[in-house]
């Protein structure tokens, strides 16, 4: 490459080498992927959703295949925040020398605040990603992300106890994404990440029953990409804080498109599960695709589709 390509972006005061992150729940705590390649090539990643207590998650089967995607119903399986801090983060520190995004799940406002407070104290954590959009747990997660009032209560409670930037991860399973994003911004959120998975279902023709034990689950993969681009576009218009684009991204072209819609950074989710090398491939492919579309500085294209 002859030309100087700049892939750096700034997310809530932290400069990232590139906008490519792996999405929570598709990248574990990073070290499994570090066996395959140097994960420092990524901008960063968001680790597995963490709750106060350990959770086993939902009954099996938890996975159903779809055209251009899959439905998952993991149910926030994680070892609990204390184990994450004592066991997982030290292992991650050996392979990632960058700030990581801490994904926080919860079943009450107090739980969100307490888990965030504990993770805020970890030096490795750069951002707190508050997941108010998990479709796979009852009485929590998505219940907070589908109502502007509830979402802003979570944001206020978390902001009151942390020092690091708070990013709210939103659900697409709402009638007015803009109202919820604005409420989060007003409550003090430093960024908005969207979209989490879409509620979906598959039925097995042989058993004539839903494939997923929990019946419904979160649909993700390339099929949801246009929905994600649309929602990122709408939210970018409505808020002044950075937007992270998530949903069906699997190529460097998708990254550019999502950034044109308004994303400062992006997260790759489902694609990691079918091609564990996909994030590395996207990062390596970005300069070529930038060149192809006459882009020399990636941050210049953020929200580019809104101009004129």
């Amino acid at each position: 490459m002859v030309k100087e390509m700049n892939t750096k972006v700034e997310l809530c005061g932290i400069t990232m080498d590139n906008p490519v992150m792996a999405a929570s729940g598709t990248f574990g705590y990073g070290y499994e992927f570090a066996e395959l390649y140097d994960i420092n090539v990524l901008g960063s990643f968001s680790f597995k959703g963490t709750t106060l207590e350990p959770r086993f998650g939902n009954p099996l089967p938890r996975i159903a295949e779809c055209n251009e995607g899959l439905i998952n119903s993991i149910g926030l399986q994680n070892p609990g925040v204390d184990k994450v801090i004592s066991d997982e983060l030290p292992k991650l520190a050996e392979c990632l020398h960058k700030k990581v995004m801490a994904n926080v799940g919860g079943f009450s406002i107090e739980e969100y605040a307490e888990v965030s407070r504990r993770l805020d104290g970890c030096e490795q954590v750069g951002w707190i990603e508050v997941n108010v959009s998990c479709p796979n747990v009852h009485d929590g997660g998505i219940a907070f992300g589908t109502d502007p009032e509830a979402a802003s209560s979570v944001v206020r409670a978390v902001k009151a106890v942390v020092t690091k930037p708070v990013i709210v991860k939103l659900s697409p399973n709402v009638t007015d994404i803009v109202a919820i994003a604005k409420a989060c911004e007003e409550a003090g959120a430093d960024g908005i990440a969207l979209i989490n998975t879409m509620l979906g279902m598959r039925i097995d023709l042989k058993t004539k029953k839903p494939v997923i034990a929990n019946k419904m689950g979160g649909f993700s993969g390339p099929a949801v990409f246009p929905v994600a681009v649309r929602m990122v576009y709408q939210v970018y218009e409505a808020v002044d804080i950075p937007v992270i684009g998530i949903g069906g991204i699997s190529t460097a072209e998708d990254v550019i498109e999502m950034m044109l819609a308004g994303a400062t950074a992006i997260e790759v989710g489902a694609a990691n599960l079918v091609d564990p090398y996909v994030c590395k491939k996207i990062v390596e492919d970005l300069p070529r695709v930038m060149d192809k579309y006459g882009i020399t500085d990636l941050k210049d294209i953020i929200g580019g589709a809104h101009n004129g």
């Binding site: 598709t26 990248f27 992927f33 099996l60 089967p61 938890r62 998952n72």
Partner: peptide, 12 residues
């Protein structure tokens, strides 16, 4: 039924 098959997704 597996998602990734290599330990990342907790699907199984």
């Amino acid at each position: 039924r597996m998602g990734c098959g290599f330990g990342a997704c907790m699907g199984c």
